[in-house]
Amino acid sequence: MTDKDKKIKTEFIASLVRLYGKDRSSLLPVLQEFQKKFRYIDEYSQQEIADALSIHPVEVNSIISFYAFLYDKPRGKHTIRICKNIVCKFHGNKELSKFMEKKVSEFNKDKSEESKITIEYVNCIGLCDRSPSMLVDEKVYEKINPHNAEAILEELS
C-alpha cells in the first residue's frame, strides 16, 4: 500500500468517526461504511480504526471475524452468496452451485483481482419458499435455475 492510499484511508476513517462518534459502539457502522467503499478492511485500516476509536486492533479484528459480512481479506467486485440450507438443497442447489462455479471461474479468467466475482455458501437467508435462492451483493434472487442465473451473471459484467 502506498502512502497516498494510506492517507486516503486514514482520512476516510476520520470522517466516519466524526460522523458516528468516537465511541466503541460506532465500530460496526464504521466498519460497514469502510467496507462499502474499499470492499474489505485491511490490516492497516483495522489498526487505524482501532486507534481512532481508542480500542485495541485485536478487538476490531475479533468483530470482523465474528460477522460473516465483514472481511479482512481482499475480495472481488461482486459477491454471490448461495444459500446452502436444506430446502434450497431439495430444490436443486447442487446443480445451481455447480453451474455457478463453472460460469464464475470462466468469468474470473484474465480478470484483475478487483473485478473478480467471489462465490460463498451461506446459511439460510430466509427464502425457503422461493428456493433455491441467493444474494448477489445486496440484491436477492429467488427460484434460480441455470437459465436465469446466466442472465444475472451477464448483468454483473
Binding site: I55, H56, P57, V58, E59, N61, S62, S65, F66
Partner: peptide, 10 residues
C-alpha cells in the same frame, strides 16, 4: 489494557 488477545471467529 494491553489488548493483545481476543476471541476470533464464531
Amino acid at each position: 489494557e494491553v489488548g493483545v488477545l481476543e476471541a476470533v471467529n464464531r
